[in-house]
Write a protein that binds this DNA or RNA. Structure first.
Length: 421
RNA sequence: GGAGAGAUGACCGAGUGGUCGAAGGUGCAUGAUUGGAAAUCAUGUGUACCGGCAACGGUACCGAGGGUUCGAAUCCCUCUCUCUCCGCCA
């Protein structure tokens, strides 16, 4: 959420953000609602002021004057009772629109519609040249007995899978490697709730737009998170943090759930796009200082890159264009790992800055040392998302016989084994 | 799932219809005192929104939402959360 004052004063920039992020929102409607909201508020508050005045007068008034005053107070109350629903209605409309206003992308973000308009900023490692026909992860894993497809799809539906044997072990190893890397880099490990209230989804910007992307537990009005960022940011909702506590750096470990509502029929083969996955997520809350946030953004990116380096996976980093950004993001870098089976770099990490967007929505504030009360900035980045990460891991390290050579960093986590066969 | 207790400002805690945005204490800030500190004394110390260049003014907020009343922290209803006990359970 943005500051309404900022929106009023920078309407053109916000309109551009709406257009560039390819959102459907009429800012004029919001500004009109804002105007109406303020006018009604002023009117209502004048009535209330008179009401309070009368309420103070009545007990002091002499008997003869009372009926007159009480009559006026009754009339005022009728007026108030008429205005209140009006205000509530315009307030609701205003709030609903406010929740749909995107944050403004930073100047360096390229304007564009889709993936093709993302701009590569760096490339690390060389895609391996195979002297045999490389297999994709589906073939490799199936052959090595690392995954079950059929039974899960029978009893759990499309996009279901079960990692088994070395597949499951490898997932745990990779997750644990990521966790240890982040702990070493000063982040606090958290395993947060995966079922959350609507307010957490609203607070982090995943609702109301995107509500159809989340699984709902209707009996208890809860939702399954699509990323632990939702829980980790919400961990501080309604809090006022002391500035010296910042930055807060979390490594969240959780299952994540996504309906993939808009992606029906897309990437149905294999483990690329699934409804349920494990993710180690990095989240930072910091003081609202662009320079500080800038540094932390690249720190998060660096952490992800360090993990990919340990996994010995070639990757590239691209800055996402406006059309690929989420509602609240002010900047997003995508890390794309080389996947021989797709013969392409594909997204495995997403590093985002939000400015105060999430903090405002989640009602998280910071008390600065000079006493000022402000909204902190939030940032996040994937550390590892599995099973997706298994795709480049297995495909890049495969041998001609279909076995897998494990990167060194993974060996201790795999009980000393150096290859899967 | 059953039974009970509770939710007040940074914290503790008083307050059962008007003088309560809220006693008192603690904390914190500033000043006085002091060689300096402690102690003491004095003053101040919530947030949001609306209006205003500002000073300032107004409104709302005592878990949340609704109701009664000229007037609600206080009375009524609903909900949420926390704690205790019982049951069930990884």
């Amino acid at each position: 959420m943005l500051d309404i004052q900022f929106i009023r004063q920078n309407a053109d920039a916000v309109k551009a953000a709406i257009r560039n992020k390819r959102l459907d929102l009429d800012l004029g409607e919001l500004l009109a609602a804002d105007k109406q909201r303020r006018e009604t508020t002023t009117l209502l508050e004048q009535k209330r002021a008179r009401k309070n005045e009368l309420a103070a007068l009545i007990p002091k008034a002499i008997k003869d004057d009372r009926p007159k005053l009480v009559d006026e107070a009754k009339q005022i109350r009728t007026d108030i009772e008429q205005l209140e629903p009006q205000l509530a209605e315009v307030q609701r409309r205003f709030q609903d629109l406010m929740l749909r206003v995107p944050s403004v992308p930073r100047p360096e973000v390229p304007i564009g519609a889709g993936e093709g308009d993302n701009v590569e900023v760096k490339r690390v490692g060389e895609p391996r040249k195979f002297d045999f026909a490389p297999k994709d992860h589906v073939e490799l894993m199936t052959k090595l007995g690392m995954v079950e497809w059929e039974a899960p799809r029978k009893f759990a539906g499309g996009r279901s899978y079960a990692l088994v044997g070395d597949g499951a072990l490898l997932e745990m190893a990779v997750l644990r490697l990521a966790v240890d890397t982040l702990i070493e880099r000063g982040m606090k490990l958290v395993t947060p709730p995966v079922m959350v209230r609507e307010r957490a989804m609203m607070g982090t910007g995943y609702f109301p737009i995107g509500k159809d992307e989340a699984y709902a537990i209707t009996a208890d009005d809860l939702f399954l998170i699509g990323t632990s960022e939702v829980s980790l940011v919400s961990m501080h909702c309604d809090e006022t943090l002391e500035a010296d506590r910042l930055p807060i750096k979390y490594a969240g470990s959780s299952l994540c759930f996504r309906r993939e509502a808009g992606a029906a029929g897309k990437d149905t083969r294999g483990l690329y796009r699934v409804h349920q996955f494990n993710k180690i997520e990095q989240v930072i809350l910091c003081v609202p200082d662009e320079a500080v946030a800038e540094k932390l953004h690249y720190e998060l990116l660096g952490n992800a890159e360090a993990i990919l380096a340990e996994l010995e996976v070639p990757y590239r980093v691209a800055i996402a264009c406006t059309g690929e950004m989420g509602l609240g993001q002010t900047r997003k870098h995508e890390v794309e790992s080389w996947m021989p089976g797709r013969n392409a770099y594909s997204e495995t990490h997403s590093c985002s800055s939000f400015g105060e967007f999430q903090a405002r929505r989640s009602n998280i504030r910071v008390r600065l040392s000079d006493g000022a009360l402000v909204y902190p900035f939030t940032l996040n980045n994937t550390a590892i998302a599995s099973p997706r990460i298994l795709i480049p891991l297995l495909e890049n390290h495969q041998q001609s016989d279909g076995s897998i050579t494990l990167p060194r960093a993974l060996v201790p986590y795999m009980n000393g084994r150096t290859r899967l066969a």
